[in-house]
Every structure is written in C-alpha cells, then in structure tokens.
C-alpha cells in the first residue's frame, strides 16, 4: 500500500515536470501554432498524469478523478483546434522557417488587419 502511494507520488511529480516542459515550450517556441503544440498538449499529458498519480495514492477517489481525466481528454483538443483555426483566420503569421502552408492555398483567405485597433 505504501509502495503504491509512493509510485503515485512519483507519477504526479512526472506530470508536474511535463507541465513545466509545456510552459517552457510556451516561452521558447517562435510562433502561435508551435506554442499551441508545445504548450497546451504537453500540459494536458501533465494534468492527466497528476490526476492518475493522485488516483493511485487515494483509490477511494477514483470516480471523480476518472471523470476529470475523461473531460480533460475530450475538451482540450477541441479548444486548441478552435484556437488554431481562429489564429489562421486572423492571419497570425507563421514563423520564417515554415516549409509549406497548404491550408492557405485552399481556404478563401481573409486577413483581418483591423483587428488590433480595438482601443479608443
């Protein structure tokens, strides 16, 4: 029992390290799309691992922790997909080393340039 709890704590520690890596990726990546890649998804795995670790430590809490894990798995990719779509529609620039942009060739492309003069 004690061993299981220590394994769970170590899993939580691994999850927190993934969260940290996600945040570092958020800082280091050059453009918005890569930030979405590195930021939101590494941290998604980090959160899932933290929940799983606490589930191993406290087995009586499995119901709510399982619901949390499933909801994180379902909602997070949808939100990052919608965000990336909005970014491409707004005309957020890709970084200079980008090889190819097939989406731009297909989509009717409306750059929203006056998005930034929202203030008065």
């Amino acid at each position: 029992m004690e061993l299981l709890a220590i394994i769970g704590a170590l899993i939580t520690l691994a999850g927190s390290i993934f969260l940290l890596l996600g945040a570092i990726g958020l800082l280091r990546m050059p453009d918005s799309y890569n930030r979405i890649q590195a930021g939101t998804k590494a941290s998604t795995l980090g959160t899932i691992l933290s929940f799983a670790g606490i589930l191993l430590i406290m087995p009586g809490w499995w119901g709510k922790l399982l619901v949390l894990i499933i909801s994180v798995i379902i909602t997070n990719p949808v939100s990052s997909h919608v965000l990336a779509r909005a970014a491409h529609y707004m005309g957020v620039p890709l970084t200079k080393t980008t090889l190819v942009d097939k989406y731009r060739e297909e989509e009717e492309y409306i750059a929203v340039k006056d998005q930034n003069n929202e203030s008065t």
Binding site: L21, G25, A38, T98, K102, Y103
Partner: peptide, 25 residues
C-alpha cells in the same frame, strides 16, 4: 501520447530548437 510527448519535450529542451514546421493536408 506518451511517446510523442517525450519527443516534443526533447525538442523543447534542446538549445537549438530543432523544428521545421508546416501545414500539410
């Protein structure tokens, strides 16, 4: 999930940031 997270993590902590991104169909 775990395998490719490790991949991205190694990319992030490498100082030279080895990425060559693009949008494919």
């Amino acid at each position: 999930l775990v395998k490719s997270n490790l991949d991205v993590a190694s990319r992030v902590i490498t100082p030279s940031l080895p990425i060559n991104p693009g949008i494919v169909e």
